[in-house]
Amino acid sequence: MAKIFYKVVLTVAFISLLHSAISAAQHRSYIRLNELEFTHLPLDVFIQTLLSLFTIMYAVLHLAGDFKEIKASAELENKSWETFRNIPSFYVFSHRGGKCSPSKASLEESE
């Protein structure tokens, strides 16, 4: 239920940010048409932009889930030394040990 709420908040905030961008572009074109000097955006557009931005950040933080610690050792503290060496990409199954084994050699000769 909470995720749906934050998704709706995020959508509304993005629409509000898009509206403030369109308002800023319209203000800029109005200034150009009237040959006025651009000093700053209107206060209502500026406030809407900031509120939309902060609302987007708030909603994204709640939708993103749990964050991991920046410290690299925080995740590795619970693992033992044996699990560090257990890397599947280093597994070798077709090695020459089978050729040297007396039981394997006698089975291959009988075939």
Rank of each mutant, 00 (worst) to 15 (best):
I47H: 00
I47L: 02
T49S: 01
T49Q: 00
L50Y: 03
L50I: 01
S52D: 00
L53G: 05
F54D: 00
F54K: 02
T55E: 01
I56Y: 02
Y58N: 00
Y58T: 04
A59K: 11
L63E: 01
L63F: 14
D66W: 07
F67S: 12
F67D: 09
K68H: 13
K68Y: 03
I70S: 11
K71G: 06
A72N: 10
A72M: 08
S73G: 08
S73H: 03
A74Q: 09
E75T: 00
E75L: 08
E75G: 09
L76N: 07
L76Y: 05
E77V: 11
E77A: 15
E77Y: 15
E77I: 06
S80W: 11
W81H: 08
E82C: 09
E82T: 08
R85C: 15
N86P: 02
N86A: 14
I87E: 13
I87S: 10
S89H: 04
S89N: 11
F90Q: 14
F90V: 15
V92A: 12
F93E: 10
F93P: 04
F93G: 13
S94A: 15
H95L: 07
R96W: 04
R96C: 11
G98D: 06
C100T: 12
S101R: 08
K104F: 03
A105Q: 07
A105L: 10
S106P: 05
S106Q: 14
S106M: 10
L107A: 13
E108G: 04
